[in-house]
Design a binder for these strands. Structure first.
Length: 428
RNA sequence: CGGGGUGUGGCGCAGUUGGUAGCGCGCCGCGUUUGGGACGCGGAGGUCGUCCGUUCAAGUCGGAUCACCCCGACCA
C-alpha cells in the first residue's frame, strides 16, 4: 500500500505565493459550526449557499487523500470503482416506490426539455441495481462489489453543521450483490473490517464505534459507524465493557435483543461517518432482478449497501482535532505534510530553503513553502491555522548552526535537527 | 415546516430624535521593519439585500419579498 494520494500530492507541491487562496483573521458571521469557520478562514472551502460548499485547492487535497485511503481499502476487499450519473430516470425509482415525495422527501427533481421527469441523485441504490441487471446474469458472475465517489444532492429542510451536513456532499457508496445470504453476510463483515481500517488510517479509529441502528429491511439492525464528536447530531449509548454501541433510535430494541443493561450505558454525542445496510433480497425482488442459479432457477440477488460520507468525515476530523490556533490534520490526510518557512530573504537563506524544498519533494513528501515576504509570526500563524502537521524553519540562526528547525503542529517548542534526520522522521 | 434572529465596501462591525455613510482588518503605492498575525505616510473601493410606500428628504419609518444563521421536527 503506497502513500495515499501520493501521485496527486506530488503534482501539486507548491509555494505559498502561487496559492490563490488566502487566510482570514475574521470568519463570516453566518457560520457557527467550528469546522466551517476554520475551513473557511484557512481557505479550504468556499460557501456557495446554505449547505453547499465549494472545495478549494487545499480542501480538495484533503478530500483526495481521504478518497485515496478509502479507495485502497475498498479495492483490497474486491471493490471495483465506477462512476454513476447524477441525472436519474424516474422509472428506476418507481419500481421501489421511492420516486414518491411522500416516501423520499429530500428529492431534487427537474424535467428534460421534453417534459420528462428526472431526479438528481440523492442515492444510487436503485440505479446501481438497475445497471447490474445488464451484466450479472448467472451465479458464475457473483459476487460483485462496485463503488464510487459521487456527489449526492439532498433537499434537506435545514442545512447545518458546516460541511458535516450539506445539501450537496461527497459520498463513497459501495454496493454488493451475492447469490447467497452466507456470501452477503461474509462480505458485509469484511466491509466492517475494511471500514475500521479506513477510520484507523484517518486517525479517528479510537473514537469510532460500530453502532447498532435502525434500517435494514432484511435485518433487525443496520450498522452505523459513529464517531464521538460534540458537533455530531446523533446520540450514542455505549457499553464500554462489552464495546457495544447503540444509536438512540433503536435503544429499547437493542437493549432487549443484545441483553444490555441500560444503566451501564454512557450517553454520548456522535456523528455518523458511515452506514451499511443488508437489504437481503428485498431490493432485487421489488425491481425484478434475478440471476440463474446452478439449478437453472431464477433467483433474486442478495444486496448490500455501504456508505461513507467523505465530506462529512472531513468535517468531523476538522472539528475533533482543532485547537485554539486552528486546524490540526492527521499526517495521512493533511493537504501538505510540511509547512516550510524561510525567515529573512537573504540569498543564502533562500538557497537553503529551496534545497530543503527540493529534498523533501524528492523524498515524496508534499510541502507547502511559505515564500511570502511576510514576518515570521504571520507565517507561523498561517501554518498553524491551516493545520499542516510538520513545520520546518530556515533562518540565519539555523544556517549558523548548520541545522533545521522542526516543530510538529501540536508540539510546544521546536527542536533543531538535520535534513537527514528530518527526512528519516517523515518517511519512517 | 413551526419559533427566534440578522442583512451597511472582500471580511468583521458602527451609524443618535430621518438631513445624503464611517471604523478595524484586508487591498494598492512609497518608506522603515523581519523569530508568533509590525509601523508611518498616501490611496482605491459602498445606488446600505430587493421592491413598493410615507416624507421636502430614508441606511434609519411602514409593508412585501429574498437570503442567511440559531433552536425544534426530519435526515447519511
Amino acid at each position: 500500500m503506497g502513500e495515499p494520494g501520493l501521485a496527486y500530492a506530488k503534482l501539486l507541491t507548491m509555494k505559498r505565493t502561487e496559492l490563490f487562496t488566502k487566510t482570514s483573521k475574521t470568519v463570516p458571521a453566518d457560520e457557527t459550526a467550528l469546522n466551517a469557520k476554520l475551513l473557511i478562514r484557512a481557505g479550504y472551502v468556499h460557501k456557495e449557499m446554505a449547505g453547499v460548499y465549494a472545495y478549494l485547492p487545499l480542501g480538495l487535497r484533503v478530500l483526495e487523500k481521504i478518497k485515496g485511503i478509502i479507495r485502497e481499502e475498498m479495492n483490497a476487499i474486491g471493490g471495483q470503482e465506477l462512476l454513476m450519473t447524477n441525472l436519474q430516470p424516474k422509472a428506476v425509482w418507481q419500481t421501489t416506490q421511492r420516486w414518491d415525495d411522500n416516501i423520499v422527501d429530500i428529492w431534487f427533481k427537474t424535467k428534460l426539455q421534453s417534459g420528462e421527469d428526472i431526479g438528481l441523485a440523492w442515492s444510487h441504490e436503485e440505479p446501481i441495481m438497475n445497471m447490474l441487471r445488464d451484466y450479472v446474469h448467472s451465479y458464475k458472475d457473483l459476487p460483485v462489489a462496485v463503488y464510487q465517489f459521487q456527489t449526492k444532492l439532498r433537499n434537506e429542510l435545514r442545512a447545518k453543521s458546516g460541511i458535516m451536513r450539506g445539501r450537496e456532499f461527497l459520498m463513497k457508496d459501495m454496493y454488493s450483490v451475492h447469490a447467497t445470504k452466507e456470501d452477503l453476510d461474509d462480505f458485509y463483515n469484511q466491509t466492517i473490517e475494511a471500514y475500521k481500517r479506513v477510520y484507523d488510517r484517518l486517525g479517528i479509529g479510537n473514537l469510532t464505534y460500530v453502532t447498532f441502528a435502525s434500517g435494514g429491511a432484511f435485518t433487525k439492525f443496520s450498522h452505523e459507524f459513529q464517531t464521538l464528536c460534540e458537533a455530531g447530531e446523533d446520540w450514542l449509548y455505549l457499553d464500554r465493557e462489552r464495546n457495544i454501541a447503540v444509536n438512540e433510535e433503536v435503544l429499547d430494541d437493542a437493549v432487549k435483543e443484545l441483553g444490555l443493561s441500560k444503566d451501564k450505558l454512557e450517553k454520548l454525542r456522535s456523528a455518523e461517518v458511515g452506514n451499511i445496510f443488508n437489504f437481503g433480497t428485498d431490493k432485487a425482488e421489488q425491481m425484478g432482478i434475478t440471476f440463474a442459479d446452478q439449478d437453472n432457477t431464477q433467483k433474486p440477488f442478495y444486496y448490500g449497501s455501504y456508505g461513507i460520507g467523505v465530506t462529512r468525515v472531513m468535517g468531523v476530523i476538522a472539528e475533533l482535532f482543532a485547537d485554539d490556533r486552528g486546524l490540526v490534520w492527521p499526517d495521512n490526510i493533511a493537504p501538505y505534510r510540511v509547512y516550510l518557512v524561510n525567515i529573512g530573504n537573504s540569498p543564502e537563506v533562500l538557497a537553503r530553503t529551496q534545497a530543503v524544498y527540493d529534498a523533501l519533494q524528492e523524498s515524496g513528501i508534499d510541502v507547502l513553502w511559505d515564500d511570502r515576504e511576510a514576518r515570521p509570526g504571520e507565517k507561523f500563524a498561517d501554518g498553524d491555522l491551516m493545520g499542516i502537521p510538520h513545520r520546518v524553519v530556515i533562518s540565519e540562526k539555523t544556517m549558523a548552526s548548520d541545522s533545521l528547525e522542526y516543530k510538529g503542529r501540536t508540539d510546544e517548542t521546536p527542536i533543531n535537527t538535520s535534513l537527514e534526520e528530518l527526512l528519516n522522521r517523515l518517511t519512517a
